[in-house]
């Protein structure tokens, strides 16, 4: 079990996984809050076009994907901001077009024969192949994303909670929306190497979905989802080493398992918390109804409307 910590590629894999575990939920929580949980998925599809362009021009696929994803995220944000009824159709076109375009570009790339193998590494992640340069890229981009999403927490929370109200407070809503879209795009491309484009959205959504089963406040949800993100990322990578399974799948399935466990314990835990709060503060009412109803015949005398409650 411990020998994996002495292997250089495993050390790099674990560090990369931890960085994604922090970054993805930090952005994802705002997307979930705005009920755009699948936006990361859409960006992931479009990222494939960026990877394809990287192959065609023989440049870094990751940086090409960053560029294409940022453009796509800005387009998506503009479509969303217009409140267009056909917005979902427009986004669907973008997603499928991005996926198909990426596959086609890769097939036409000079290194087409070898590329299909490395295409797989972008679709499903290749965390064990992360080298030091990759790690530096992931750390730098991740640091920017975390700085923005945690530093502007109150502003982004306000925008995602109630965009119209946020506009009336005078904060730059459009700028913050674009910033969030760009951060989501950067996160997708950063997480691409770890869990793969097809599962990237899971790391942005599942830890948040699991955390919010147990929390009442936004701050606690954000903290817990980041903690869960790190835990399942490290656990998934370690498990993949131990049981020889793909790390991306292991991370996502572990996160979903945590979600399932949290779902099961959420209701009993809430009941427990409610009871302890009632015991401490005495704010809750009695456990059973102890109200004595007035005599039905006499109580109506002063009520001109008869029984308005029932009338409705």
């Amino acid at each position: 079990m411990t020998e994996m910590f002495s292997l250089a590629f495993m050390q790099r894999a674990l560090i990369a996984a931890a960085l994604i575990g922090i970054t993805a939920p930090a952005v994802g929580i705002y997307l979930v809050q705005r009920r755009q949980a699948l936006m990361g998925d859409g960006i992931g599809h479009v990222a494939l076009t960026g990877v394809g362009l990287g192959f065609i021009f023989q440049t870094s696929p990751v940086w090409m994907a960053v560029l294409v994803c940022i453009l796509a995220a800005i387009v998506m944000e503009l479509v969303r901001a217009r409140g267009n009824n056909r917005g979902d159709i427009a986004l669907a076109m973008l997603f499928y077009g991005g996926m198909a375009c990426g596959r086609m570009l890769i097939s036409k790339s000079p290194a087409a024969s070898g590329a299909s193998g490395s295409l797989d590494s972008y679709l499903w992640g290749s965390i064990l192949a992360v080298d030091t340069a990759d790690l530096v890229t992931i750390a730098a981009l991740g640091a920017i994303v975390v700085a923005v999403t945690l530093g502007l927490r109150r502003q982004l929370f306000a925008v995602c909670q109630d965009e119209e109200f946020a506009r009336v407070t005078g904060i730059p809503v459009r700028l913050l929306n674009l910033l969030l879209a760009v951060m989501a795009a950067v996160t997708v491309t950063v997480a691409m190497r770890v869990v793969g484009l097809l599962l990237v959205s899971a790391m942005m959504v599942v830890p948040v979905a699991a955390a919010q089963l147990l929390t009442r406040s936004f701050v606690a949800t954000q903290a817990l989802s980041i903690g869960l993100g790190v835990a399942v990322s490290l656990g998934g990578v370690a498990g993949s080493y131990q049981f020889d399974v793909p790390p991306g799948s292991a991370i996502v399935l572990l996160a979903i398992a945590v979600f399932a466990v949290f779902s099961a314990i959420a209701a009993p835990l809430a009941g427990l918390r409610h009871r302890s709060a009632a015991g401490a503060g005495g704010t809750a009412g009695p456990g059973v109804c102890d109200v004595v109803l007035p005599d039905q015949d006499g109580s109506r005398a002063g009520d001109p409307l008869g029984s308005p409650g029932l009338a409705q």
């Binding site: 809050q33 929370f157 904060i171 929390t215 406040s217 936004f218």
Partner: peptide, 17 residues
């Protein structure tokens, strides 16, 4: 919204200006 928030957190957004 999609994520839990407390009464205080929601009211605090009015203090952003």
């Amino acid at each position: 919204s999609g994520v839990p928030a407390t009464v205080r957190e929601v009211v605090s957004t009015g203090r952003l200006p």
